[in-house]
Computed example of a mutant assay.
Amino acid sequence: MFTIRYQPNIPDHELSQITLADFEGEYGNVLYGQFEINVNGKTYGLYDPDAPTPILEFFEEEIIASFGLLNEVVISMQHHKYIALNTIDAHFAWFEFIAEGEDLTVYHVQVEEDNISSFIVTEPLNCISICYWQETITKQEFIDEVLDKTDEFIRHIEKVNPALLRSKSIQGLLERCGKSKLLR
């Protein structure tokens, strides 16, 4: 089982009032919120729609960037059996995705160094200090969930504030998602 759950920290009524100029300027093309990845019951991140505001602000993730990077993993799977993805908010925390046949083993690891200059690498990390967990799912399950939840997120933005679809960050996400869909 592989699931993604997310929720922007900005309520829809406020999100609907943000202009494209404000989103790209004041908000920096970033939409923060809860973002949780669940692999066979092992989780990373937080999703609790009933959490009080102080907790929500502490566990903020960049939702657009997270979906963008997960789509990059899908795209990279076409040419690589090994992909490592930085967790964005913690330089030392990574996910490793290792494809074998129809299976995809996902590792949540900590590295000793933070001098890796990219959020995604296709050469094995050689500085792993801790493996928190490892779980195996199917590649198709991963691809389907990433694409379905990215589409759901984009449709939600389109419904609440279609002007934001023209932002640089969401345009980039749409482009990545389009490339990922070719692999379905």
Rank of each mutant, 00 (worst) to 15 (best):
M1A: 12
T3A: 08
I4D: 03
R5I: 02
R5N: 06
Y6W: 11
Q7N: 10
P8L: 00
N9S: 05
D12E: 13
D12A: 15
H13F: 14
E14K: 15
L15E: 06
I18A: 01
I18P: 02
L20R: 13
L20T: 12
A21V: 15
F23I: 06
G25H: 06
E26V: 01
E26S: 04
Y27H: 05
V30I: 06
G33L: 07
G33K: 06
Q34H: 15
Q34E: 15
G41Y: 13
T43I: 11
G45H: 15
A51M: 15
F58C: 05
F59Y: 13
E60Y: 01
I63Q: 06
I64F: 02
I64D: 02
A65Y: 04
S66K: 04
F67K: 00
G68P: 01
L69F: 03
L69P: 02
E72L: 10
V73A: 04
M77Y: 01
H80P: 02
L85W: 01
N86W: 00
T87H: 05
H91S: 05
F92H: 07
F92I: 05
F95C: 03
F97A: 03
I98M: 09
E100C: 10
G101Y: 07
L104W: 03
V106K: 00
V109L: 08
V111M: 08
E112Q: 14
E113T: 13
T122A: 05
N126R: 07
C127D: 10
I128T: 01
Y132A: 00
W133K: 02
T136Y: 08
I137P: 09
T138Q: 12
K139D: 02
K139Q: 15
K139E: 14
Q140F: 15
E141P: 07
I143L: 14
E145F: 10
E145Y: 08
D148G: 05
D148V: 07
I154H: 05
H156E: 14
H156C: 06
E158R: 13
K159M: 10
N161P: 07
P162S: 12
A163L: 09
L164N: 04
L164F: 06
L165K: 07
R166N: 12
R166A: 11
R166F: 14
S167L: 11
K168W: 09
K168H: 14
I170E: 01
Q171K: 12
G172V: 02
L173I: 09
L173D: 02
L173T: 04
E175Y: 08
R176E: 13
G178F: 08
G178R: 11
K179E: 14
S180Q: 08
L182K: 07
